[in-house]
Simulated assay, not measured.
Amino acid sequence: MEFTGFPVAALDFYDDLEVDNTKSFWEAHKAVYADQVRAPMVALTDALAQEFGEAKVFRPYRDVRFAKDKTPYKTHQGAFVGAAPSTGWYVEVSAAGVRIGGGTYHAAGPELAAIREGIADDRTGKLLERILRDLERGGFDIAGDQLKTSPRGYAKDHPRIALLRHKSLLGMRSYGFEPYVHTAELLDRVRQDWRRLRPLVNWLAERIEG
């Protein structure tokens, strides 16, 4: 299947799902999900696979076993291409439109320690600062969960203490409802932005994988 954009019906589907997140709604509209949401996402990630790798297109069902929110379905469709554990490129469609990103969405234990060592090192830490500065200048938002205090073993006055507080680190961009999200042009936009995110993804992957 050739990628031609996400239909308006894909965004409308999630608008309606946010109002009626029930099995009865899903059963009545699962063909819309399959044809207007999942199929275009598969086509988009297939078109990017040769350059970035095979994507995991996430299942629509929420894991509610330990969640207070028991609504059964995710209100977005995401796909992820991994470059290292919890690290790679992301694309998502929802009622809010389309957004993309790249980086590490979760790090703990040895992986987080390795990232922090890379941030603390003058050479690799300054390189990361340049990468993030370039992304911000290019219109990306730098995001990620952060500690409220300094991580153990690092001084509060470290020149990169704000980065050292990160437990995840991502460059994100929202396309929202721009007309091109409904056309084949979106493929080129995602490809270009994933290329711009490659230095961040590579920096993180090199730390994590040693």
Results as ranks from 00 to 15, higher is better:
Arg207Gly: 01
Ala120Val: 09
Gly125Phe: 08
Gly109Pro: 10
Val201Arg: 02
Ala84Tyr: 06
Ala34Thr: 15
Val37Ala: 00
Ser168Phe: 02
Glu27Leu: 14
Ala143Glu: 15
Phe177Asp: 14
Arg165Met: 06
Ile142Asp: 06
Thr87Asp: 05
Arg137Val: 12
Ser24Trp: 08
Arg62Gly: 02
Thr149Leu: 09
Asp12Trp: 04
Thr75Met: 03
Val201Pro: 00
Gly125Glu: 07
Val19Trp: 07
Tyr61Pro: 06
Gln50His: 10
Gly5Thr: 04
Gly97Arg: 08
Val190Pro: 01
Ala84Arg: 02
Val64Met: 07
Ala39Glu: 13
Pro179Asp: 03
Arg195Trp: 06
Asp193Ala: 06
Leu44Ile: 03
Glu111Asp: 15
Gly103Asn: 01
Asn21Ser: 06
His182Asn: 11
Thr87Gln: 07
Asp122Ala: 13
Ile161Ser: 05
Asn21Pro: 04
Tyr105Arg: 10
Arg173Trp: 02
Ala114Asp: 08
Ile161Met: 13
Trp89Ile: 08
Asp12Leu: 12
Pro72Ala: 00
Glu178Gln: 15
Arg137Pro: 08
Thr183Ala: 11
Phe25His: 09
Asp63Trp: 11
Tyr14Trp: 07
Ala47Leu: 04
Ser168Lys: 05
Leu44Ser: 00
Pro7Ile: 07
Tyr90Cys: 05
Gly144Gln: 04
Ala10Lys: 00
Tyr14Cys: 01
Arg191Pro: 01
Ala162Cys: 06
Arg191Asp: 05
Ala162Glu: 15
Arg65Glu: 08
Gly125Cys: 10
Val64Trp: 04
Lys167Asp: 07
Ala31Asp: 15
Glu185Tyr: 05
Lys126Pro: 04
Leu163Asn: 02
Gly144Asp: 03
Ser24Pro: 05
Val37His: 00
Leu147Met: 15
Leu186Ser: 03
Gly5Ser: 02
Tyr73Val: 03
Val57Ile: 15
Val64Asn: 10
Gln50Glu: 14
Leu132Thr: 12
Tyr154Leu: 03
Ile119Asn: 01
Leu200Gln: 07
Ala96Arg: 14
Phe66Glu: 07
Asp46Ser: 14
Arg59Asn: 11
Trp194Ile: 04
Lys74Ser: 03
Lys148Gly: 13
Thr183Met: 05
His106Ile: 09
Asp141Phe: 08
Ala49Tyr: 08
Leu112Glu: 08
Arg133Tyr: 12
Ile208Tyr: 02
Asp134His: 11
Thr75Gly: 01
Val81Tyr: 00
Gly101Thr: 09
Leu197Glu: 06
Ala31His: 13
Ile100Ser: 02
Leu200Thr: 10
Ala184Thr: 09
Ala120Lys: 11
Glu18Tyr: 01
Asp69Cys: 04
Ser150Trp: 05
Leu186Pro: 02
Gly5Trp: 00
Leu132Met: 12
Asp122His: 12
His29Pro: 05
Thr183Val: 08
Ala114Met: 09
Tyr61Lys: 09
Ser174Val: 10
Arg137Thr: 14
Ala84Gln: 04
Asn21Glu: 07
Trp194Gln: 03
Ala162Gln: 12
Ser174Ala: 15
Glu117Tyr: 03
Arg165Gly: 04
Phe80Ala: 03
